[in-house]
């Protein structure tokens, strides 16, 4: 698997004990990971602790990262997700993955801060596609848990995820073409 060249450099330095490489990786990825963690736990102080804990784990376990199995960010995302979900299960018996009712009621979004608002091209997708990605990626539910939360069959849910990713790619391609045209027209 091709990893970003910068990531490879930081990872090699980290393997040699260079903690500054950790801070460089933090600068690059903390926003993306914090966005995931905060949407999962919905508490800023808690999320900051979890972010710190995640990067400590990245530092301590960098020897286990295998670039053949995927990108660095995918590995880091899993660490952040597991750290958050484990902490949530330990800290509050009410916030368990079994308690899915909070996701069934769409109005519950008004009770929490806007961390759950989605941005970018994802926000342009149809509601069921947004919701599917939101549940498995930003809420940390498994496919099994998420299809129950959306009250749709598992097969339908898997289709939502697949379609969402396809739509995102299509829209990005359209956007790229548009940007290219604008550049060409602008120079012309």
């Amino acid at each position: 698997m091709a990893a970003d060249s910068k990531d490879t450099e930081y990872i090699n330095r980290l393997l040699n004990g260079d903690k500054n490489a950790l801070y460089l990786l933090y600068d690059k990825y903390s926003g993306a990971l914090y966005g995931v963690i905060l949407r999962m736990c919905r508490d800023e102080d808690f999320a900051q602790d979890l972010l710190q804990e995640s990067f400590i784990k990245i530092w301590q376990n960098i020897g286990n990262y295998d670039s053949e199995k995927g990108k660095f960010y995918t590995w880091a995302y899993r660490i952040a997700k597991n750290t958050t979900l484990n902490s949530l299960r330990r800290s509050s018996p009410l916030i368990q993955t079994d308690n899915l009712s909070v996701y069934e009621n769409k109005n519950v979004q008004l009770e929490i801060k806007d961390y759950s608002d989605l941005n970018g091209i994802l926000a342009q997708l149809e509601p069921q596609h947004q919701q599917a990605i939101n549940l498995v990626y930003f809420k940390g539910l498994t496919h099994q848990e998420a299809h129950k939360a959306m009250n749709v069959p598992l097969g339908s849910f898997k289709s939502y995820v697949r379609q969402a990713l396809l739509k995102l790619r299509e829209k990005r391609a359209e956007l790229s073409m548009l940007v290219l045209l604008i550049n060409v027209c602008g120079h012309g």
Partner: peptide, 28 residues
């Protein structure tokens, strides 16, 4: 798929407070 999820994450990134990095350095 990997690329797409990473883009989604970056588009929905939330910058952590400055003191989060300081706390990490202190912990390290």
């Amino acid at each position: 798929i990997e690329q797409e999820f990473e883009r989604i994450a970056f588009e929905n990134a939330i910058p952590p407070p400055e003191n989060a990095k300081k706390a990490l350095k202190s912990s390290v």
